[in-house]
Amino acid sequence: MAGDRRVGSGEATVVLADDSGPLRLPDELIADLDGIRLPETGVPGGPAAPRPHPERLHRAQYSYWAPLRSRIGDVDSNQHVNFIALATWYDEAVAAVTLDSIGTTAGGPVPDPPPRSYRIQYLGEVTYPGDYEVALTVRSVDTGSVHCELGVFRGNTCLGVADAIGPRGEPSAGR
């Protein structure tokens, strides 16, 4: 919130799993999570986010790549790279592709504005230390928006995917 204006929102799907797959969340945990649910967020047991299409998990699906190295500051209390850090990785990948596609060198203009929304799905653990690649492909462009698909990879393993929507913008003179 910025004053009385909502400027962002988010939601999460919690999955408890072991080697056999997903497990039922304990009733106490469900009650705790329901207790902190905001009023405008759906109903318990509602539809889960659709799983990514299998092609999204393969490197050949993506056109552009940005290397990234996890930093100790990216890690949460569970020793995983936290969601804010991952969201900034996606922003950095979009910026790197934008800068590369317009031929800008270091010290040039920063892409503006970044994507206005992401839908992120976690598929595996992103940890520290680690070297990763964030992949991107432009799925579609319409009159006002660019729709991108992104993935976080360690080697050939896809650890997460994201869908991003950003403003199309107009190229400036010289691009």
Rank of each mutant, 00 (worst) to 15 (best):
P26S: 13
G42Y: 03
G46F: 00
D27Y: 00
S101F: 00
L38P: 00
E28A: 15
D112R: 13
L16H: 11
Y62P: 12
N156D: 15
I120A: 04
L57T: 13
S101A: 13
S9L: 12
I84E: 12
G3M: 07
A173E: 11
Q79S: 14
I36H: 04
D34W: 02
P67H: 02
V15I: 14
V81H: 03
P47V: 10
T41I: 05
R59C: 10
Q121M: 11
A93D: 03
H80R: 07
A49M: 15
A162V: 04
G73R: 11
V138C: 08
R71K: 08
L99S: 14
V110D: 10
E170R: 13
A48V: 06
V94L: 00
G166Y: 01
P171S: 07
G45C: 13
A93T: 13
S20W: 01
G10V: 03
V126W: 01
P167C: 07
T13P: 01
V14Q: 05
G174F: 08
D27H: 10
E125D: 14
S20M: 07
R5S: 12
E133L: 12
P115K: 05
L38H: 07
D131I: 00
P50R: 15
R69K: 12
Q121H: 08
R69G: 12
A48S: 09
V141D: 02
E149D: 15
R51F: 02
T13G: 11
P114Q: 01
P113T: 03
G160L: 01
E92G: 13
S101K: 09
D32S: 11
G155R: 09
R175A: 02
D76W: 07
A162Q: 02
A135S: 04
R168G: 05
P129G: 10
G45V: 10
P113Q: 05
L68S: 03
L16C: 14
D74E: 08
R168H: 00
A85C: 08
D91K: 06
A49I: 12
L23M: 14
S140Q: 11
P115A: 14
A60V: 09
S145D: 07
R139P: 00
P114C: 00
E40G: 14
A96C: 05
D76G: 08
P39C: 06
Y118P: 04
R116I: 09
E11M: 11
Y64N: 10
G155T: 05
R116D: 08
I72V: 10
D131H: 05
P109G: 07
V15K: 03
G42K: 06
P115R: 06
G10Q: 04
T105Q: 14
H58N: 14
S70F: 09
H53G: 11
G166T: 02
